[in-house]
């Protein structure tokens, strides 16, 4: 589906808002609550990565192109990951529910791959990361309109156990 530029900007703005404020996004809110529970997330912790760096980037409809906002987030991720080299991690790719099952699995893989390639281009070692697609199987927001779909079209960088 091709979007007119005006709509694309709306999506980008919504995605950015979700990134910055975690508005209405279960995963983000959880991360914030966890961070609050231990006071300030200690530098180099998984909470630090989720809360202060941002563990996810968002995509427009049927696209795996990294938006400027996504690149900014991934730049921060790369810097952090390069600083804390003890982490291996998984890049998860996700799609919203507005696609067919098989296609969305491949689209999620394509999104994870786009994020992975970008992190590699910023100096993160390829052997620290793997990718996986969840297609439309693991939404974070479960309403059936654009506000949720915007949050579900994402790639999430998930830190594995430290020190591996």
């Amino acid at each position: 589906m091709k979007l007119r530029p005006t709509f694309r900007h709306v999506f980008v703005a919504a995605a950015l808002a979700a990134t910055l404020f975690g508005a209405g996004c279960a995963g983000q809110q959880k991360a914030l609550e966890q961070g609050a529970g231990i006071g300030v997330a200690s530098p180099g912790s998984a909470q630090d990565f989720q809360v202060n760096v941002g563990d996810r980037v968002f995509f427009t409809v049927d696209s795996s192109v990294l938006t400027p906002q996504a690149r900014t987030t991934l730049d921060r991720q790369a810097q952090w990951l390069n600083q804390y080299g003890q982490y291996a991690f998984t890049v998860e790719g996700h799609a919203d529910e507005r696609g067919t099952r098989e296609y969305n699995l491949a689209l999620g893989a394509r999104r994870a791959n786009a994020a992975r390639d970008y992190l590699i281009s910023r100096g993160v070692a390829a052997n620290r990361m793997r990718t996986i697609s969840y297609g439309k199987e693991r939404p974070v927001a479960v309403c059936n309109d654009v506000s949720c779909w915007n949050q579900n079209r994402r790639s999430v960088t998930v830190l594995n156990a430290a020190g591996s």
Binding site: S64, E102, A106, A109, R110, N113, A114, S133
Partner: peptide, 9 residues
């Protein structure tokens, strides 16, 4: 079946 390679299936 489909096999994924990078961004392509």
């Amino acid at each position: 079946m489909s096999l994924q390679q990078g961004g392509n299936a």
